[in-house]
Amino acid sequence: MSARRRGRLGRGAAVALVAVLGLALFGTALPAWARAETPTTVGSAAVAVNGADAAPGVASAALVVLVAGLVLALSGRVTRVLAVLGVVLGGALAAASAAAFLADPEPALRQAAGAVSGATELVGEPQVTAWPTLALAVAVLAVLVGAALPWLAGSWQRVGRRYETAAAAPSTSPDATTAGTPRTRAMDDWDALSRGDDPSAS
């Protein structure tokens, strides 16, 4: 095996990597991304916003990356290009959504506060968790992996090609022709004996 081939991922490994990135992106959108306090008539109440509400683009991008991984598993050359674009664009969308939230988390928290108390005011500074930063890191990694996929997939064989090649190859060699004939010859000899002929004389 050449060094060039050893340096590339197989189709299965690449599909698994893309799937892991998509699942990781989706997982980062589930926990709370930020917490704050909002005033109420009896004091203050805690509000929290998760990634799916704070940055809806992250969860949507995770689904795009997962679908792209499925397409990558089944694709030929043209659909492989679409899968690569799906991974890159999905990662870019998630990165942009996470970065926008990190730049200004208050709008999402104010919306959550309005659902709790009817007011959109916050008490003190919001507390941002590590999840949006992790989502941003996974999204950037997805973009890098997607950009590298055309090089990684250069030596992949199209799905089903090996079976098509095997089915198209005719078995016309002399060995293949004669391999299955002993039984046929024995039946012919038996028929000759039934007719009163001597098969050994032919």
Rank of each mutant, 00 (worst) to 15 (best):
R110H: 04
G154T: 05
S173R: 11
A3E: 14
D188I: 13
S117T: 11
L70I: 13
D175I: 09
M1R: 14
V47M: 05
V116Y: 04
A108K: 01
P132V: 13
L134R: 15
T165Y: 00
V64N: 00
P126S: 12
S200M: 06
W151V: 05
V49K: 01
A52Y: 03
A36Q: 03
A61T: 02
G114K: 04
A68G: 09
Q111W: 05
V88N: 13
A94L: 05
G86I: 02
W33V: 05
V78M: 08
D104H: 02
A100P: 00
R162I: 00
N50K: 00
R11Y: 12
A94T: 06
G196Y: 09
L17A: 15
W33G: 05
S173G: 11
P174W: 02
V65M: 01
L30F: 09
L25Q: 14
A55E: 03
V18N: 01
L134G: 10
W151L: 10
A45E: 09
L70Y: 13
P132C: 12
A3T: 12
V20P: 10
S171W: 07
L109T: 06
P132K: 11
P199T: 10
R4Y: 09
R110C: 02
A54L: 04
A16S: 14
T177G: 08
G12A: 15
P56L: 03
D191F: 09
S194F: 06
L25P: 12
L136T: 10
P107K: 08
A52H: 04
A169Y: 05
E37R: 12
L134N: 07
G7H: 04
D197T: 07
P31M: 11
S155L: 10
L70R: 15
L85P: 00
A103F: 01
V159I: 07
A62E: 01
L23F: 13
A167C: 03
A48Y: 07
V145L: 13
L72T: 08
G57Y: 03
A48G: 14
G57Q: 06
A14Q: 09
S75Q: 08
V65K: 00
L149P: 03
P199W: 06
G146T: 14
V159E: 02
A115R: 15
A98I: 00
L17V: 02
G160R: 02
T172R: 09
A139P: 01
P170Q: 07
L141V: 14
T165N: 01
A95H: 10
A167I: 06
R162F: 00
A62P: 00
A192M: 14
A167H: 03
V159F: 01
G146H: 09
A92C: 10
A52E: 09
S171G: 04
A24W: 09
R185D: 09
L63S: 12
L93S: 14
L23Y: 13
V159A: 09
P170D: 05
G146I: 13
S97N: 02
V58N: 09
A46P: 02
T129A: 12
T41I: 07
Q127K: 11
A147W: 08
A168N: 08
L134M: 12
V71L: 15
R77V: 13
P105K: 04
R77C: 04
A13Y: 11
T41A: 15
A19P: 01
S44N: 03
R183N: 08
A45S: 14
G114N: 03
A52P: 01
